[in-house]
Every structure is written in C-alpha cells, then in structure tokens.
Amino acid sequence: MTVIQEFEKHPLAKYLRAERFPHIWCEGCGDGIILHCFVKALDDLAVDIDKFVVVSGIGCIGRAAGYVKCDSFHTTHGRPIALATGIKLANPKLTVAVLSGDGDLFAIGGNHFIHAARRNVDLTVICSNNFNYGMTGGQSGPTTPLDSYTTTTPYGNIEHPFNLVHLAAAAGSVYVARWTVLHVRRLAESIKKALRKKGFKFIEVISPCPEIYGRRNKLGKAIDIMKLYRQISEIRHGYDPAKAEITREKIVVGEFIDIEKPTYGELLQKQFIKIQQKLSEG
C-alpha cells in the first residue's frame, strides 16, 4: 500500500487532494491544524462540496486552497475577499470561505476586509495569524506585536499591532471569534457555526510559525509554543473585543460577537426588485 492509498483511509481525506500530500508546511506549523479543523467542520456539517468554494491569497496558509478538494482559488496577494465577494454575488447559492494570512488580509488586503465586513457580504473569513509574513521569510506585518523581532524589525518592532477581532467587530462583522490552534474542538465548532450563519463572519486563529517567527523570538519549538497557548489562553465568551488582548502573558480567546443583520446579497436582491418595479411603472 502506498502512503497516498493509506491516507485515503483517513476519514477527512475525501475533502482533500490526497495526491498533494504530505503538505509543505513546516514541522509543527499551525496551518495544518487550521486546515484539519476546517475540513472537520465540512465533514460534520455534511457540506455539499459541489456548492462550496474556498479562496485564499498568497502566503503559507494560502496553500490551503490547493489542498481542499472543492472549487478553490489561490488568488493574488491581498485579494481573496474581493474575489470571494464576486463569486458569492455572481452565484448566491454557493457557500464561500476565505482562508488566508494576517499579512494578506490586513496589510495589502486590509481595505477589502473592512469594506466586505461593512457591507456584510456573506463570507466566512478565517485568518491564520502567525504575527509575520511567514512565506517571504518573516517580515513584520500588521499584527506583529510591539517589541517583537522579525527580519524587518531586528531591533524590535516599534509599530502597534491591530487587534483583529476589534477591527472585525468595529467594521461590522456579524460573527467574531478567536481561538488558538490548540483549541481544536472549539475552533471546529466555531467554523461550523460561522458556515451556518449568514453575513460576514470572522475567525482569527493564533497559529505558531515555529520556523521563522518562533525562532526569531526565541519561543522554542512548536510544542513549546503550544504549551504556552495552554498556559496563557483565557476563554471569555461575549467579551468586548476591544479589550480582548494578546500579550506575552495572556491570549483572550472565545466568541465575541454573534449578531444578525441583512446581508449585502439580500439587500442587493431587494434593491434589484424595487428598481425593476419602478421601471415597469414607467
């Protein structure tokens, strides 16, 4: 039996392009766990894979689009939300999820993020936040913590980072949660909840990049980073996302926002009918 034939016995292999495995992510990289929780959520929900689309941008986590066995797009850096918006509006029957990185979604793609959240486009956006640009060698980005070391901040970062859950909530997201990759069950449940809900849903996943960010900041091996998550994570459901901090001593995780409001697609449809009526009345 080849390794791929053996992999096909894995209960989640049916959602993955087995021939592309093993994946390219480094030892202990959190991206593998995010992908795992994601396909576990698809399996638990018995998602109709023919009506499901995954979009990602460029970055280590961006490879996820190439591993899922459904229609998927590995689009240009920073643009997955723009592309996903187009897919959803052109074919509202599809469920569209974006899996991308902190750099992709919040540096080059920051404007797409806030405006899709503001419009309440019906998308589930999952961000692998590893606090740096992993793929290009570990530059600092919009979530790099103050004083952290990266290739572009060799003397320590002097920029204040975004608090992604606060940003998402302020921009209008109807569902906002944060987990670490250690919280596998809660993360998978959160993804299920987001996929079942309408509107712009955002899940931040704190994810180790042991090879680059971890090494530069002397965080130890991947297992040490996971133990740190266990030690310093605090679950606070319903907590004010503005106060949901990430420091060296504490990572506040949980479900922070869960509200309802009309989606962009629904309002667009209504508007369309209204205009047609006006025109037919002359």
Partner: peptide, 11 residues
C-alpha cells in the same frame, strides 16, 4: 485533530 500533518486517524 491536533496532528498538523494528518498523520493519525482512528477507525
């Protein structure tokens, strides 16, 4: 679920 490399599965 925790294995980042899909190396473990239960039957």
């Amino acid at each position: 679920t925790l294995c980042p490399d899909f190396a473990i599965y239960l039957e």
